[in-house]
Design a protein around this nucleic acid. Structure first.
Lengths: 210, 210
DNA sequence: TCCTGTGAAATTCTTCACAGCC
DNA sequence: GGCTGTGAAGAATTTCACAGGA
């Protein structure tokens, strides 16, 4: 595997994540090799797309044969940085925060929830998925002590920007934001937004435009 | 407003949804007009992008002045199909289903949750956000009776494809899927996937590639 | 003067098509 | 014969830059 010469396209990274999921299923099913065509079918894309995506990071396949499911799994996990454990904190112990905290499968995929924070005193001290909820006032010291790598923001949009800034200062360089806020963070912090209302609105558009 | 001549780009639709949110804030704040530059800043894009996006649907602005916040709000709501009420069902009353069901703000934006379904007899009969959980065995008849337009799938990946097919047959043409399944639906059904593990993996990639 | 609307250019992403290796 | 790896072509999307109306 070689590191890409220039920046990698985001769509490619998203697809790698999908390929990985299907590869794991194929490996589980005892398939030793898989072709770009099969992988494409699983992921709803084309074989050329699969090969282009992979070739960006190296030559993992064998001509005439395909890819070794196991080797390719290992390669993609390495490319995505999943060959290590990531330490996650969740800010907001409401409905969404609880759902994320209780989601099995994150830990299995290398994302360990090491801390949960909330501003509501009624929630502080209670346990969620084996982790005790801390007061968000102690965010910085706790985040440093816990050596958190990533944060999930599951809180109202009003307080999200302030918390994002504090997280960035505390050394968290990756944030998954469920609020609808527009976060202002230093350029060395990556933010991804999941906006459910937006997704419903895209569906609404699709329904009225057919 | 004129209907677009050819198919609209998905990125454009996503941005329209964002613009709408900022417009509402501006309108609330009493701003009568707004320029493409201001809107761009809110949405993290460029003024040219904003103008291109809007011009695809008509000429809503006034040269030298900008856009009327109120008029543009109305136009975008109409473009996105938000000038009506959408009827939503949730399949799966677990953590994610409950979080979606309990989310205030969907109703305010025109998405009314009219039904919740689950396969677990222990959950059937209980109320979630004012709606009683029904047995998923009665999905088809209930969905038709409730005249549901959209469905949120918040269930294990194993059962998702079957439920998606049943929903499509029952007349639901828009599905928001939280499972990691690859859904096979007729071409007149729009599916959008929200995959939290994938989002974390994209963050992971960003962390190891800087 | 300010700011929109929009062709044209630039860039990004996907698909094609085929040489090369198993 | 089958399937990968990859330049080249094509399509989609964004940015530029400027004419034109308020």
């Amino acid at each position: 595997m070689h590191t890409p010469t220039r920046k990698t396209a985001e769509p490619t990274v998203r697809r790698l994540s999908l390929y990985l999921r299907y590869l794991e299923a194929f490996e589980q099913a005892g398939r030793g090799t898989i072709s770009s065509g099969e992988l494409a079918q699983s992921g709803g894309t084309t074989s050329a797309q699969v090969r282009k995506d992979l070739s960006f990071f190296g030559s993992f396949g064998k001509r005439g044969l395909g890819y070794s499911t196991h080797e390719l799994t290992v390669h993609i996990r390495e490319i995505l940085g999943l060959d290590r454990q990531w330490r996650l904190v969740i800010i907001g112990a409401g409905k969404i925060g609880s759902a994320v905290a209780g989601h099995r499968g994150f830990r299995d995929r290398g994302f360990e929830i090491v801390g949960i924070f909330d501003a509501d005193p009624h929630r502080v001290g209670h346990a969620l998925g084996g982790v005790t909820v801390s007061d968000v006032r102690h965010l910085e010291t706790e985040v440093k002590r816990l050596r958190a790598d990533m944060a999930v923001l599951a809180m109202p949009a009003e307080s999200a920007p302030e918390v994002a800034t504090r997280l960035a200062k505390a050394g968290v360089h990756a944030i998954l934001d469920f609020s609808t806020a527009q976060l202002e963070v230093p350029s060395d912090v990556t933010v991804r937004s999941v906006n459910l209302a937006l997704e419903l609105e895209v569906l609404s558009f699709a329904l009225v435009n057919r």
